[in-house]
């Protein structure tokens, strides 16, 4: 009996199956790891470095306050208001018609009222003096907040003390 010879199969080009496998793995990795669409209002700054520290999983319950040195050595605080895309400056106190308003305190109180798990993240440049951070902490205390988180950069090398 004469055996039929195998047909001559011609490859159509480069085998892309391993490429697709790898790329799919990368896509799944990025989809799991990347935080897309989460904007906390964190501004780039030179944060103090720490070894200890924890991650905050529920960033939706947080309000990030960026503390800078403002005019007249006063704290300048910026934050990202809800449903807005750009950070806005928020004064600690404002005099309107002879009456003193506390916009930051009002924002914190409202957030605390609406969300019992509300917490504040404070971001400040590492060379900032405590005199500029203290009013923010006092405002948080006045708003009855007891969960304050200080953003720090993770140390990647051992410190030389």
């Amino acid at each position: 009996m004469r055996r039929q010879p195998m047909p001559n199969i011609r490859e159509g080009g480069v085998n892309v199956t391993p490429l697709i496998d790898v790329v799919m793995c990368l896509i799944i990795f990025f989809m799991l790891v990347a935080k897309i669409g989460i904007t906390t209002g964190a501004e780039p700054m030179d944060l103090p470095e720490t070894i200890l520290g924890q991650k905050i999983e529920d960033l939706g319950n947080t309000l990030t306050l960026n503390v800078h040195r403002g005019a007249g050595n006063q704290p300048l605080v910026t934050y990202l208001p809800k449903d807005e895309r750009a950070n806005r400056e928020i004064p600690l106190a404002r005099n309107v018609g002879g009456k003193v308003h506390h916009p930051l305190l009002e924002v914190l109180k409202a957030a605390r009222r609406n969300n019992p798990r509300f917490k504040v993240i404070i971001r400040a440049q590492k060379d900032l003096g405590y005199e500029l951070i203290e009013p923010i902490l006092q405002t948080c205390a006045a708003a009855d907040l007891n969960n304050i988180n200080f953003a720090t950069a993770q140390v990647t090398e051992l410190r030389q003390e």
């Binding site: 991650k55 969960n147 304050i148 988180n149 720090t152 993770q154 990647t156």
Partner: peptide, 11 residues
């Protein structure tokens, strides 16, 4: 954001 973490404080 892998290089950032937080120190939690209580008042």
């Amino acid at each position: 954001g892998a290089s950032e973490h937080f120190l939690t404080s209580n008042l």
